[in-house]
Amino acid sequence: MTKKIDRRSFFSTFGKGAIITAVVSALPTKFISSIDRVSKKEKINIVIHPSAVKRTKKV
């Protein structure tokens, strides 16, 4: 048996949902999670070997 909800109540719930969605999506979650990731990971450092001899002629 389906629970009956009147039209006003439905749109009221729907509207609240939309507002919560907008607020939650505005939170800087990605920014916060990326700060966390950067702090945990060691950055990979790419350094060109100082003594390597680059080719001077066309390959």
Binding site: F14, I20, T21, V24, R37
Partner: peptide, 24 residues
Amino acid sequence: RRKFLALLSASAALTATACTNYRD
């Protein structure tokens, strides 16, 4: 129809917050 719309709004919220494949 009712359940569909409820799921739709919930999934919209989830998509916006957590389900993106975002990688920094």
